[in-house]
Amino acid sequence: MADRERRMTPPFGGVFVASARVMTRDDMRRAIRRMAHEVIERNQGSEDILIVGLQTGGVKVAENLVKALEEIEGREIESGCLDVALHRDDIGLRPVVPEAATNLPDLIDGKIVVIADDVLFTGRTIRAALDAICHFGRPRSIQLAVMVDRGHRELPIRPDYVGKNLPTRIDELVDVTEEGVDLGVMRK
């Protein structure tokens, strides 16, 4: 989770204290590689695939996924990023992060859009992302890849590709960085 986003997401303030490292850098690299293979298997190739990273934590996941897909397939994979702040149902509860930009290809009609994010929690971000993507066009299908699924869904949304299923308490926090994935809590 980007530092800035963490500061701006309730509960405000406090410091993240990690209690356990649940994935190392290597675990993450292997998980990305496996998810890339699953994407290709499920879609019988990489034709029309568009990887969309959600600002801000999903952008890095998307980048790595694109890299892995390109290595396996030996061709360029289309990608983009999406900021869903203006499509959320909790506007006003989260301040706006000005540097998070949206940048999608002009034409997404007929594409297989794979949304990439770091942590899947309530599912509300993904709902907002589905809403936003449909404003850009009509993809053939939309799929979801996440590094960590920590449970506690509040909407009927499920991921298609998961790096790691991680059962958590609702008050815990999952922090995904380049170094790895940590489970911990916010301390005042």
Binding site: A85, H87, I91, H135, F136
Partner: peptide
């Protein structure tokens, strides 16, 4: 955007 509208407000 093709549909220049967001549901923010």
């Amino acid at each position: 955007r093709p549909i220049p509208k967001v549901p923010a407000l």
